[in-house]
């Protein structure tokens, strides 16, 4: 797609998203709202896993930090929803740094386990602490309001989520094409070489981790007021896995891919309702099949497709590009 056609596609998609509430029934509107949550969460995780290459298996922990911070501040201290947002984000960033600082030096697979452990610790804390309402969680979280208008209806939350999702996508996109975003990708590609190019890998990883945490907590804050009740069950390991699945399914590091992945992860189970029990079984099989046959995802990131790019078939490089490609390129160069 050339840039202008891409723009048209984005505008069309946004237009459809804007009129969706008037076209669909309540049930599907709810599904769409949930999908938008996942778009935000998956983009946040995309920064961590897709850009920086850090496998995080406890991402739901940040979702929980946001939800609980907002929930507690609103019910116990009667704060306004909008004021809880920055507090939750700062808090999530701090938690991210606390978790990340000692662990980001670890090898990738150890890091995965450590993040999983932290995710479980945060969930168990939520179950056991009184301030988080123990196993039953926090309920009666008030609705947010803008200048007297209370956001109470389904449609209100749909639009709120849509705005946040668009903001998240734009933010992640801008970060991804910046000096910082490139630094993350250098680290993902080759840590030592990145360090030799003057990139402080620990600081950059911490930054990726914290930004992921902030985006996750934002989704959590909105989740708390949308649901008006939160419980530890929403922040389980399965939740972390589903978010990761959205990122992997769509394509690690690919912004449109991750949006697609998030929508699929939410929409497919709804379509598979008749086979309820088989859902996660199918997901598990899909993950394995994906890694075996299309590890780059459904809509992979294409780094070579940028403005002014002169592309040829042989350059359609994907992860693990075959030796054949290389040979063809060699011939072209010698010619």
């Amino acid at each position: 797609m050339n840039p202008s056609r891409k723009k048209i596609a984005v505008v069309l998609l946004l237009a459809v998203a804007c009129v969706l509430p008037f076209l669909s029934n309540n049930y599907w509107l709810d599904v769409a709202t949930l999908a938008l949550f996942y778009v935000v969460l998956a983009q946040g995780l995309n920064v961590v896993v897709g850009f920086a290459g850090l496998l995080d298996l406890g991402y739901a922990a940040f979702f929980a930090v946001g939800a609980y911070t907002t929930g507690i501040l609103m019910t116990v201290y009667q704060w306004s929803f909008w004021l809880t947002l920055p507090v939750a984000m700062v808090f999530a960033a701090i938690v991210g740094v606390i978790i990340g600082a000692p662990t980001l030096r670890l090898r990738s697979d150890y890091l995965a386990i450590v993040t999983l452990g932290f995710g479980e610790i945060i969930r168990i804390l939520a179950i056991n602490l009184t301030i988080t309402g123990s196993a039953s969680g926090i309920y009666g979280i008030p609705r947010p309001s803008i200048g007297g208008y209370v956001l109470g209806g389904q449609i209100d939350f749909y639009y709120l989520n849509l705005i946040i999702a668009v903001l998240a996508v734009v933010a992640v996109k801008r970060l991804g094409t910046s000096r910082i975003g490139r630094a993350w990708m250098y680290i993902r590609e080759d840590e030592d070489a990145a360090e030799a190019m003057g990139i402080n890998r620990i600081n950059m990883k911490l930054l990726a981790y914290s930004i992921g945490a902030v985006i996750g907590s934002l989704a959590g804050s909105v989740f708390a007021v949308k649901m008006s009740a939160i419980a530890p069950l929403s922040f389980s390991f399965t939740q972390s896995i589903m978010i990761l699945l959205a990122v992997v399914l769509g394509g690690l590091g690919s912004i449109p891919g991750v949006v697609l992945g998030a929508v699929l992860v939410i929409a497919l189970p709804e379509l598979l309702r008749s086979v309820e029990d088989w859902r996660y079984l199918i997901f598990g099989a899909a993950l394995v099949a994906m890694m075996l046959f299309r590890p780059q995802g459904l809509w992979p990131a294409r780094y070579e497709m940028k403005r002014g790019a002169r592309r040829s078939k042989t350059e359609e490089a994907t992860e693990g590009g075959s030796g054949n490609d290389v040979k063809l390129d060699n011939e072209k160069c010698n010619a």
Binding site: S108, D109, L281, A286, L287, M290, M291
Partner: peptide, 10 residues
């Protein structure tokens, strides 16, 4: 690693 997670879910 992701494959292993998939196997586990399965």
């Amino acid at each position: 690693l992701i494959t292993a997670i998939g196997v586990s879910l399965f």
